[in-house]
């Protein structure tokens, strides 16, 4: 029988043991993740009339607003390779997927607080369930982008099937990583969620979703979402790959920091439960 040991010593002092147990629990948490994923998917819209349409409704509404603004001349984006409606729709759907990933990870401790305080669930199972949920929502949005691309351009580039899913995965992973980093603080201080609500507004405007931007702009350099989202949109709609260097740098950093953030999340949970769990 397996022996488990909980001690006061820091887990950081034995990084190999920490990472080994993280990956082992990721494997053993698959069943819990699947059950929670099915629970979340089936219960989320069970008592809703519009059901899964709610995944699409906010970005579709936002697209409509921006198209109306453009048609009335309030905004005038330049040098678009694709119709504006497709530009905004694909950008909004990708942005919603990113925000969904971030929020889902950020709320993961609060959403499962009772479970974490009273039982002893596999943390990786909880995270995995949240990530699968984010992926499912993203797949539904992706299907809409494919259809919209075909409708507005008459074809879908092969890169949209070959490379775009990988790029979108990186975008989701980046959002999830930021969410995991915020989750412990979010569980302890309500301010974090309020501040993030404000930041999302600025972040949306700082990302070229409804307007076009020069690829050399400093806004793209300092905002990691911009090159990731632009690459995803370009691959989905035109098949272009305009920011290969920035995209590669941010992808590498995302994968590297994702593992560290995951370790941080795991280390912080018992401390949070000691402060907030009842």
């Amino acid at each position: 029988m397996e022996v488990r040991v909980y001690s006061a010593s820091s887990q950081v002092r034995r990084p190999l043991a920490l990472f080994r147990s993280m990956f082992r629990d990721l494997m053993t948490g698959q069943e819990l993740a699947w059950r929670l994923f099915v629970r979340d998917v089936t219960s989320e819209y069970r008592d809703s009339v519009l059901g899964y349409f709610w995944i699409l409704l906010p970005p579709l509404g936002a697209t409509l607003v921006w198209v109306l603004l453009r048609n009335s001349g309030i905004i005038a984006p330049q040098d678009l390779k694709i119709p504006y409606i497709l530009y905004v729709l694909s950008g909004s759907l990708l942005w919603e997927s990113f925000v969904g990933a971030l929020s889902r990870a950020q709320d993961s401790v609060i959403r499962n607080q009772t479970m974490l305080a009273k039982a002893r669930p596999n943390y990786e199972g909880l995270l995995l369930a949240s990530f699968w949920y984010v992926c499912l929502n993203c797949v539904i949005r992706l299907a809409i982008v494919y259809v919209a691309t075909f409708v507005f351009t008459g074809s879908i580039p092969w890169q949209a099937f070959a490379f775009a899913p990988g790029a979108i995965f990186t975008l989701l992973l980046y959002g999830f990583m930021v969410g995991m980093l915020l989750a412990p603080f979010s569980a302890m201080f309500r301010d974090v969620q309020r501040v993030m609500g404000m930041i999302f507004g600025f972040w949306f405007m700082a990302t070229p979703i409804v307007y076009s931007i020069d690829p050399d702009s400093p806004l793209i350099l300092i905002n990691p979402v911009a090159p990731l989202l632009l690459t995803c949109r370009d691959l989905l709609t035109t098949g272009d790959f305009d920011l290969p260097i920035l995209f590669t740098i941010y992808t590498t950093l995302t994968f590297l920091f994702f593992v560290l953030t995951w370790a941080f999340y795991r280390i912080s949970i018992p401390h949070i439960m000691a402060r907030t769990g009842g």
Partner: peptide, 28 residues
């Protein structure tokens, strides 16, 4: 149960542990 981290000392157990601290945890 490993829900909290000790500030000093060591806790160890063997096998499958089931904490019944609240009944129906995770029920939807």
């Amino acid at each position: 149960a490993g829900l909290l981290k000790p500030d000093a000392g060591t806790v160890a157990y063997r096998g499958r542990l089931c904490p019944l601290i609240e009944l129906g945890t995770g029920f939807n």
